[in-house]
Amino acid sequence: MFRRINEKIIESCIKLSGLLVIIFVFLIFLFLLKDSISLFGQYPIGQFLFGRNWLPISEPPKFGIVPLLLGSIYVTIGAIVICVPFGVAAAMFIAEVAPGYLKHVLKSLIEILASIPSVVLGFIGIVWLGPFLRNTFGLKTGMCGLTGSLLLAFMALPTIISICEDALVGVPRTYKEAAFGLGATHWQTLWRIILPAASSGIIAAVMLGIGRVIGETMVVMMVTGNAPVIPKSILEPLRTLTATIAGEMGETVGGSEHYFALFAVGVVLFIITFMINLVADVCMRRAKK
């Protein structure tokens, strides 16, 4: 009898844990939403979404999200433009070209890259990459969008490479054999047969890479100059959504307009990453079929 009761308790714990996961997601969204709705009691939502100035401590304060949004978009586009070609190429090399032992070494190296904490890369951006870019391209400052893009591209590589590689390896062998049977070279097979067949997985990889880049905080906070103005180009200092929350949260008073505004920024960020992940998930599932 004791065992029966024991079993019931354990099974309840198991179901509770499943429930807990749902509750967490729900709570995260709820808390963000609750506090940002408080903002819109005091500050018009239109001015938040379309305002071109983010001046939280001026009198009166302005909470226009446009510069931050553009900052995030600039940095993300820069990073994706850099890392997607390299990432996909490396995935192709690892999946199809590299011999066994090299494959192993390369994969381990990518895993090592994935494990480097972002704050370390931010530090390298400050002490080396930023000054290097400034001197090489004659910029006003090395703390700009490009530095951030480069480091973020670097950080997103493991995600993109590993998922792309899985997608390429997952293409049925028969496709490849059929192409070989028709006399195609290995490269023709890879380029014309395998790559298109793996396209869903590759799109998923790119989406997840974008999600990773847009949500990254420490690197952008450390190297992009933190200027909350509408950036003219990626070579200028800018400020992302994430860096704004991280940088200003510590200085606000709980319950103030500024505090609520940061939560509103959080909601915008949450919604963007949510959509991106949803698309990635759909692609991923299509790739598995």
């Binding site: 995260i28 808390f31 847009i214 949500g215 905080t217 991280a246 940061l262 959080g266 990453t273 992940n277």
Partner: peptide
């Protein structure tokens, strides 16, 4: 997929 800073908030 949730960014780490959101976890912080």
């Amino acid at each position: 997929g949730i960014p780490s800073i959101i976890y912080g908030l």
